[in-house]
Simulated scan of single mutants.
Amino acid sequence: MPTSSSRRVERLLKSHPSQDGDGVKIRRIHDFGGGLDPFLMLDELGSDQPDDYIGGFPPHPHRGIQTLTYVIHGGLTHEDHMGHTSTIGAGDAQWMHTGRGIIHSEMPLTDSQGLHAFQLWLNLAAKDKLSPATYRDVRAHEMSTLVAEGARLVALGGDWQLQDGTAISGPLDALAGHGAVAHVTLEERGTLDLVNAAPTLLLYVFAGELTVSDQHIGRGQLAKLSAGDELQLSSAPGAQALILAGTPHQEPIAHYGPFVMNTHAELEQTLAEYRDGTLTG
Rank of each mutant, 00 (worst) to 15 (best):
A93S: 15
A90Q: 14
G91Y: 11
R100P: 02
G89W: 15
H81S: 07
A93D: 06
H104S: 09
D92M: 13
Q94Y: 05
H73N: 08
H116F: 15
G99A: 10
T98H: 06
I88K: 06
H97L: 13
S112A: 14
S112T: 14
E106N: 01
Q94P: 12
H116Q: 15
H73T: 11
Q94H: 14
Q94M: 13
P108G: 01
Q94K: 13
Q113Y: 15
L76K: 07
S86W: 05
E79F: 11
T87L: 04
Q113T: 10
H104P: 04
W95A: 11
G101A: 02
I103E: 04
E106W: 06
L109R: 14
H81Y: 01
D111N: 12
H73S: 04
H104G: 04
A90Y: 05
H97E: 12
S105P: 01
G75T: 07
M82C: 00
H84N: 14
D92V: 14
T110S: 14
H84E: 05
W95N: 07
G114D: 05
W95F: 15
G89N: 09
S112R: 15
G91N: 11
S105K: 06
H104N: 03
T77D: 01
E79H: 12
E79G: 00
T98F: 08
T77Y: 01
G89E: 10
M107T: 08
A93P: 11
T110V: 08
E106K: 01
D80H: 09
L109E: 05
T77V: 07
A90K: 11
S112C: 04
H73Y: 13
G83N: 07
G89A: 12
H104E: 05
G75I: 15
M107Y: 01
D92H: 12
S112G: 09
T77Q: 08
T87E: 10
T98W: 03
Q113F: 15
T77E: 05
H97M: 14
D92Q: 14
G114E: 02
G75V: 06
M107L: 15
H84V: 00
G99E: 07
L115M: 09
G83M: 01
S112E: 12
Q113R: 15
L109Q: 11
H78P: 06
T98L: 07
W95M: 13
G99S: 06
I102Y: 01
S86V: 10
T87K: 08
G114R: 03
L115E: 11
D80K: 03
R100N: 02
D92N: 12
W95C: 07
L76C: 01
D80E: 02
L76E: 05
R100A: 09
T87V: 06
G99N: 02
G74S: 10
A93H: 12
H104I: 00
H84T: 00
M82T: 07
H73C: 03
L76G: 04
H73R: 04
I103K: 03
G91P: 11
D92C: 13
G101K: 01
